[in-house]
Simulated scan of single mutants.
Amino acid sequence: MTDVLDELYQTVLNRKSEKKEGSYTCYLFEQGLDKILKKCGEECSEVIIAAKNKNNSETVLEISDLLYHLTVLMVNEGITPEDIKAELEKRSKKQGNLKKFHVVDKNT
Rank of each mutant, 00 (worst) to 15 (best):
D6M: 09
D83M: 13
P81S: 07
T11R: 15
N56P: 06
K100V: 02
N107A: 11
A51Q: 11
E87C: 05
N97T: 08
K19F: 12
D6R: 14
K99M: 03
I48P: 02
K19Q: 13
E7W: 08
K38P: 00
N56D: 12
L5W: 09
C26G: 10
A51Y: 13
D3W: 14
K38Q: 05
H102K: 10
L33H: 06
K16Q: 15
K52C: 11
E43I: 04
K94G: 03
R15T: 08
G78N: 12
L28C: 07
N97F: 03
K52Q: 14
E77H: 04
K100Q: 07
N56Q: 11
S17C: 10
K90D: 07
A50L: 08
K85D: 13
E87Y: 01
A51S: 14
T108Y: 07
G96F: 02
I79R: 04
A51W: 09
R15N: 15
D3G: 06
E7P: 01
D34R: 05
L66T: 02
L73Y: 05
G32I: 02
S92D: 05
T80N: 10
G41E: 09
K94F: 08
H69M: 15
V104T: 12
V75T: 02
L66P: 00
V60G: 00
C26L: 03
S45Y: 06
S64E: 05
I79K: 07
K106N: 09
Y9T: 07
Y24Q: 02
T11A: 14
N55C: 11
T2G: 02
Q10D: 15
H102D: 09
C44F: 15
S45T: 12
T25A: 06
G22A: 12
D83I: 06
S17H: 14
T25E: 02
L37C: 09
L5E: 12
A86H: 10
V103Q: 07
A86W: 04
G78F: 05
